[in-house]
Simulated assay, not measured.
Amino acid sequence: MSLAITAGLLIAGAVYLFLRREMLRVILGFVLLGHGVNLILMAAGGASRRAEPLGTGLDPTRVADPLPQAFVLTAIVIAFAITIYLLVLAVAGNQDDDTLEPTGPTGHDGHDGNDDGRLPPDAGPADPSVLDSPAMADGGRG
């Protein structure tokens, strides 16, 4: 019973982290999901009713099933490789990461959320000579 509760908590934590938008939290969620699935695979092998994989007497009723253990070992290797790949993507794509939650009314990058590239109405120009340009004659609408 405790194995099922632990696996459920790990998978619930993974789903919670997947719902966050930051890349690092998604990676940590993937790691938790991998651990939870590994526990489920081990529980499928009958962890409570079996002995060690290679017992002393090799009695088939007492020896643990090696197939779930092989699945878990394969899943550990695959999860490790995918985690490394996701970490490399997180580091390499850090400059383009727009998945952070906005920190204020204008967002984390100072824009008001409009996709037209204009600044919010209360933001002044960075260079006063911009006001004299022909593009600003019609209110900056191009």
Rank of each mutant, 00 (worst) to 15 (best):
residue 5 I to V: 14
residue 97 D to S: 00
residue 108 H to G: 11
residue 136 M to D: 04
residue 59 D to L: 11
residue 105 P to V: 04
residue 102 P to A: 07
residue 86 L to A: 07
residue 53 P to E: 09
residue 84 I to E: 06
residue 83 T to H: 02
residue 43 A to G: 12
residue 70 A to E: 10
residue 89 L to E: 03
residue 120 P to S: 13
residue 15 V to C: 03
residue 80 F to T: 15
residue 1 M to P: 07
residue 55 G to A: 11
residue 55 G to I: 12
residue 25 R to T: 10
residue 124 G to S: 10
residue 62 R to T: 13
residue 138 D to A: 15
residue 86 L to I: 02
residue 124 G to H: 08
residue 134 P to H: 11
residue 5 I to W: 02
residue 49 R to I: 15
residue 116 D to H: 12
residue 55 G to P: 07
residue 71 F to Y: 14
residue 73 L to D: 08
residue 64 A to V: 05
residue 41 L to S: 07
residue 10 L to F: 14
residue 9 L to W: 05
residue 40 I to M: 11
residue 102 P to Q: 03
residue 19 L to W: 11
residue 140 G to Q: 04
residue 131 L to M: 09
residue 27 I to N: 02
residue 105 P to A: 06
residue 16 Y to T: 13
residue 44 A to Y: 10
residue 133 S to C: 03
residue 122 D to W: 12
residue 47 A to K: 13
residue 122 D to E: 13
residue 62 R to W: 05
residue 61 T to M: 14
residue 6 T to S: 08
residue 106 T to N: 14
residue 97 D to F: 00
residue 123 A to D: 15
residue 136 M to F: 15
residue 87 L to H: 05
residue 43 A to F: 03
residue 10 L to H: 03
residue 136 M to S: 12
residue 127 D to L: 05
residue 28 L to C: 12
residue 36 G to P: 08
residue 108 H to I: 13
residue 77 V to Y: 05
residue 93 G to R: 02
residue 105 P to K: 08
residue 53 P to L: 15
residue 70 A to K: 12
residue 16 Y to V: 11
residue 111 H to C: 09
residue 48 S to G: 11
residue 106 T to V: 14
residue 66 P to T: 01
residue 35 H to N: 15
residue 29 G to N: 12
residue 43 A to D: 14
residue 21 R to V: 00
residue 67 L to T: 14
residue 105 P to E: 06
residue 65 D to S: 12
residue 72 V to I: 06
residue 111 H to T: 09
residue 85 Y to P: 00
residue 77 V to M: 07
residue 100 L to N: 09
residue 58 L to W: 13
residue 70 A to T: 09
residue 113 G to R: 05
residue 105 P to W: 01
residue 67 L to G: 01
residue 60 P to D: 03
residue 27 I to M: 02
residue 50 R to W: 06
residue 27 I to C: 04
residue 121 P to L: 03
residue 85 Y to W: 09
residue 35 H to G: 15
residue 33 L to I: 08
residue 42 M to T: 06
residue 104 G to Y: 00
residue 82 I to H: 00
residue 56 T to M: 11
residue 11 I to D: 04
residue 38 N to K: 10
residue 110 G to A: 08
residue 30 F to H: 10
